[in-house]
Design a protein around this nucleic acid. Structure first.
Length: 223
DNA sequence: AACTGGACCAACCGCGACACT
DNA sequence: AAGTGTCGCGGTTGGTCCAGT
């Protein structure tokens, strides 16, 4: 199992008990987050640090919102996903009180299906051509009108080709616009670096393998 | 009432990147 | 510069719940 291998004999696994939650919460309240490696022993937990971190971030953190996603949150996730791809932590970062895991699960269980139902490919947020009726095939932007949603064409970024500065700037534009929510009449036009442009932050996550083959397709977003 | 399949969600796993030595 | 430890992220899995039959 490699570096993260666990010894199942002396490690709890599976669902967390209330006592474990309490121990973890108490410890973090006292000592703060961080040092996940040594936390379990210090807190008296038979878990690996990774598991503790996950439990805290996804479930125990006091600022978590929990509960159903609001419609504007849904819309924002869809837009951000179109912008960022499966970069759940970045998307969750724009949704106060939501975790990447929560957003990811919600996407996979609700939003993906929703888009598919609407005839939109959830991977690239484009209308699936085979679902277009002949009369609107030339004007894809009108194809989703049956859902009551309008579509908007923007430049589709390639996955992993969005550095945090750009994301921040782009999304900040959304937030700066007082009209952006709840109507979410958002203009997500973003400029992207050319491949030769160095990353502003040198952020490692942004140097992941890139899907540069996408020829800046038209992207469909809801309004 | 019992069974079944799908949906949902918490948790786990593997990998990549950074920090430190 | 190379090796090692730690952390964070995204993908996947498995258990539970619930609606439909």
């Amino acid at each position: 199992m490699g570096r993260h291998g666990r010894n199942k004999q002396d490690r709890n696994q599976g669902a967390w008990s209330k006592q474990e939650d309490q121990k973890l919460t108490d410890y973090i309240r006292k000592h703060g987050e961080g040092c996940w490696r040594s936390l379990p022993q210090a807190a008296g937990l038979l878990r690996c640090g990774k598991s503790c971190r996950l439990r805290w971030i996804n479930y125990l953190r006091p600022d978590l919102k929990r509960g159903n996603f609001a419609e504007d949150e849904e819309d924002l996730i869809i837009k951000l996903h179109a912008l960022l791809g499966n970069r759940w932590s970045l998307i969750a970062g724009r949704l106060p009180g939501r975790t990447d895991n929560e957003v990811k699960n919600y996407w996979n269980s609700h939003l993906r299906r929703k888009l598919i139902k609407m005839g939109i490919d959830p991977n690239n947020h484009r209308l699936r051509q085979n679902l277009l009726r002949p009369h609107n095939a030339q004007n894809p932007a009108s194809a989703s009108s049956s859902s009551g949603l309008k579509t908007q064409a923007i430049q589709q970024p390639t996955k992993s080709h969005v550095d945090k500065e750009q994301v921040s700037d782009a999304v900040s534009c959304l937030e700066d616009d007082p009209c952006a929510l709840p109507d979410l009449n958002l203009d997500l036009t973003v400029s992207f670096h050319s491949p030769s442009t160095p990353d502003v932050e040198g952020n490692p996550k942004d140097s992941r393998p890139q899907l540069d083959t996408a020829p800046s397709p038209t992207l469909l977003l809801f309004q």
